[in-house]
Write a protein that binds this DNA or RNA. Structure first.
Lengths: 211, 211
DNA sequence: CCGCCTACTGTACTGAAGTACGATAGGCGG
DNA sequence: CCGCCTATCGTACTTCAGTACAGTAGGCGG
């Protein structure tokens, strides 16, 4: 993925170029050529929230990482809340920048160690809460189907599920078929093909949305 | 799983019993008989943090949900930070209690809707950060294998992966086989049988650990 | 009583996945 | 040069998953 570094004066730093030899540098007031992952060097005296929001608008949803020469945890929080995918030191080592890019490109977010520890300390046990938001699949299934679903989501074979629930594989297949039906797996044309236990697992594990 | 409700006076409420007919009730000052999932009715005037910490110590790591008759978001945060797995209204409907138990027993945590929304608003984009911690699978795979892995983890068929990477299905199978090998899927005897893309998906999505 | 839902089950079939037998080709380091 | 690694690929086979044709039985509500 292309890395675009934006700053007031289109500067290019050694650590940036060392991390991404083919990077592109541009100016904050002209983001038309910005492609791929966009890194924004925070200008002094600018409110983080407004900056990030404005840029996200003009960048049309492209991934944005905020670079700060004087990192602050409050700014980090504001940037992330405004929609940035990452926040790190503008002078960070190349390896760190690469790590950030990797995480962000894979749908993750990145914040510095200090802030990460602070956030994780308060939210560490909240992370699995995501499962709750995505447990709506249960409302579509009968109790027995739910029992089978839990095993299936962990990768159990029909044979193993049958053993666990003391039923035949044939019945497991019936339950799986019901899940596929009720959770509308494979029903959308833009997601051709996949109508299998894998998609069920993704839904039950909260990685994909139920349709 | 056994549900144990602890309070100052070993009380038993209708909503509790309706949610869990076989519940056990006990007193806060004697947790020796507490088994399974432990629900603690918060006594008035008690600091949440100290209470939770003390109980977690005497409960030897058992799962603990704090019940509050006058729920407060600050108390919820404190309880969770102190290690509680859940925080909800002591008068909550039986269905809610069951939902809480289910979430907690499945490794999740539970907080009320208001706090959840507040936390999710500030942490929503932090949730995928969990992926960073579990991306060690990448270090075991070649770049090309990693590319295939990402598609596989999202449920793509070999045929679809082949199309995306402009290779044949045969090569996709080779990459999948390499993943299974390098990530040691199916190698442990206590997890008999499962040596397939499903297990790979669980590992890559951070749901199972790489062995 | 009837219809619907849930839970369970058999037989038969097709297709995808995984594995085993290979193979070629290029790059890199000793 | 050789060995190893990576990326790619063919043929053949077995097994599991998913689907289609059914079916029985019990509970519940209109």
């Amino acid at each position: 993925m292309q890395q675009t570094f934006l700053s007031l004066d289109a500067r290019q730093r050694n650590n940036w170029r060392e991390a991404f030899p083919n990077l592109v540098c541009g100016r904050l007031d002209d983001v038309s050529a910005a492609t791929g992952l966009v890194w924004v060097l925070q200008p002094a005296g600018h409110g983080v929230e407004g900056l990030v929001k404005r840029l996200r608008l003009s960048l049309a949803g492209r991934l944005l990482v905020l670079l700060a020469d004087e990192p602050s945890e409050d700014d980090a929080m504001a940037a992330l809340a405004a929609g940035a995918s990452g926040y790190c030191n503008g002078h960070a080592a190349p390896e760190v920048l690469q790590q950030v890019a990797m995480a962000v490109e894979n749908g993750g977010i990145w914040v510095g160690q200090g802030l990460m520890q602070r956030l994780l300390a308060s939210t560490a046990r909240l992370l699995p809460a995501h499962k709750i938001a995505d447990s709506s699949w249960r409302t579509s299934l009968t109790p027995r189907e739910q029992e089978a679903a839990v095993f299936l989501a962990r990768g159990a074979s029909n044979k193993e599920i049958a053993r666990q629930l003391d039923i035949t594989e044939r019945t497991v297949k019936a339950h799986v078929g019901a899940m596929l039906e009720k959770l509308h797996v494979g029903a959308m044309l833009e997601k051709l093909g996949a109508r299998d236990r894998m998609q069920l697992s993704l839904i039950i594990n909260g990685i994909e949305k139920q349709r």
